[in-house]
């Protein structure tokens, strides 16, 4: 930019990355960091709206959460938590490496962080695919027919695998690393009659027509619906699609943030090759690290709220 050229020359020799309107690199670094903290505050508030919605609906419809969280795979969730924690450690080491000007270590740590990001998104994709296959989708995409069909499949699998491998009722599905993947629906004896699930209930009479005239089942208390990893459709609370709406919106928005963080790390990997980062200039690594830690932190809240309770 011509703006840069026209003033830089009049002054004493600047660091090449110091913009014209700053007096010192230190001032510039501190401003960048303050700016990033403010941005992180806005991110927290952005997610805050979703957390708020989570808690309000949890207060209004606790049965949705008690019921719905069994559809999520705690094992994959826990693995993903570890993956992100490790990436946070390597990101912190990367910042340290950039501060001391250790380019090799910086590259290695950024690369590991990036790979952890890939791993996280890969596991997320496996989890999403299972949800999509079984019809556990947000809002109007929630597929009542598929979830019922899936329950029957679970019933068929029950004889084969249930007792052999997973006494806790988690059936087998294939995951990338051969680990137990998706905890699928296993039925209870009572569901042999296979009553249809309760569709969205509300004002619209048309909605209840979608699945026939069985909307009243929402009133039955799902006393057997909330334990042991079972997701029987019998006794399923009405409006169960809201749980999956919140699950997909929270993890989806978080996933987008992971992708943005990975793009930042990839960019850092590209530009750090010229050795530009050192004790006098490491702002991009530092604020990229701050962003990554925030993404990590949000997951630390998402995991227990969605998967465990």
């Amino acid at each position: 930019m011509s703006e840069h050229e026209s003033h830089g020359d009049g002054h004493h020799a600047h660091h090449p990355h110091q913009a014209h309107h700053w007096d010192s690199m230190r001032q510039q670094f501190e401003a960048g960091k303050l700016g990033m903290w403010l941005f992180l505050a806005t991110e927290v508030l952005l997610f805050g709206g979703l957390f708020c919605a989570y808690f309000i609906y949890r207060a209004n419809y606790p049965e949705l959460y008690e019921y719905g969280h069994h559809a999520l795979d705690k094992v994959w969730g826990a693995i993903n938590t570890v993956v992100l924690l490790v990436s946070s450690l390597t990101m912190a080491l990367a910042v340290r490496a950039s501060q001391v000007g250790n380019r090799k270590q910086l590259q290695a740590m950024l690369a590991i962080t990036f790979l952890c990001g890939c791993g996280f998104m890969g596991i997320k994709a496996v989890e999403y695919k299972a949800k999509i296959d079984h019809g556990y989708l947000p809002g109007k995409l929630f597929n009542y027919a598929k979830t019922i069909e899936h329950e029957h499949e679970g019933h068929a699998h029950d004889g084969d695998h249930h007792d052999d491998h997973h006494g806790d009722g988690v059936a087998h599905a294939e995951g990338v690393f051969g680990a137990p993947a998706v905890s699928v629906v296993a039925p209870l004896e009572q569901t042999a009659q296979a009553q249809p699930a309760a569709p969205p209930s509300g004002l619209s009479a048309s909605a209840s027509r979608v699945a026939g005239d069985h909307a009243e089942h929402g009133h039955e208390d799902g006393d057997h619906g909330g334990h042991d990893g079972y997701l029987p459709v019998d006794g399923r609370p009405p409006n169960i699609h809201i749980f999956f709406s919140i699950y997909f919106m929270m993890t989806g928005l978080h996933g987008i943030h992971v992708l943005i963080g990975m793009a930042v790390i990839a960019w850092l990997l590209v530009v750090c090759r010229d050795g530009r980062f050192g004790p006098s200039y490491f702002t991009p690594v530092e604020i990229g690290g701050l962003y990554w830690h925030l993404v990590d932190l949000i997951w630390i809240f998402l995991f227990p709220l969605l998967y465990l309770i």
Partner: peptide, 20 residues
């Protein structure tokens, strides 16, 4: 964003028709 989701996917957050 939530309102857009409600309009497109009927996620059930603001419309009583879908539980919101």
């Amino acid at each position: 964003l939530l309102l857009i989701m409600e309009k497109t996917l009927h996620v059930g957050i603001f419309s009583p028709e879908y539980g919101g």
